[in-house]
Amino acid sequence: MPLLRQIYLLLRKECILEFRVKYMLQAVLVYLIGAVLITYYAFYGRSGDLSPSTWNAVFWILLLFSSLNAAARSFLLERNERFNYYYFVTSPAAVILSKQLYNFILLTIMTLIGFAAYTLWMGNPAQDIPMYLFILVLGSATLSAALTLIAGIAAQTKHSMTLMAILSFPIVIPLLMLLLRVSRQALDGLDRSVLWDDILLISGIKLILVGVSFLLFPYLWRN
């Protein structure tokens, strides 16, 4: 079976499973929206007091924690028996790429809904909203690439949730620093040509992460 077809089938399987147990997507969304509400109460409705850079920083921290939470479960549902089955019918490349793609879709939906909720409660000082949305999607893509393989590593240990956080923080912090800076520039409505350098760097890191996961997953998979 060609790789693309395998990826498509695995992705469809993930979506069907997601649709059957709806509480998973709902749990992720409630987590993010709950966090937005906590921020709202913490600042007690005085969203006008927030400087744009604080607004941006708080939003990215919320996104980071909810993405961690969402991505951590990407391998927890897979039992050993099912992995044995995959071993016979698919290639490891298809499994990791479909998981990354699925996480990307999940994180994008989560991020966009979160952005709407955050705008509703905390206001929106962004001046270049299309660019900001593009950076959010780019951020989801990069985070999903980084977090999927780490979720796979963490799933092999006993304390996977704790390890997930410990292992992913140092990897995600550099990405987050870049994303914070570039989104701050979009927030201030700077000319788009200023942003391209950082966007290219982020995309480059994303490509490297996808490539390295693609090369490493076959070894992770072999139990």
Binding site: L149, I150, I153, L167, P170, I171, P174, L175, I205, I208, L209, V212, S213, L216
Partner: peptide
């Protein structure tokens, strides 16, 4: 993990 973290 070692290989994954090194490029970053």
């Amino acid at each position: 993990y070692n290989i994954f973290a090194f490029p970053i």
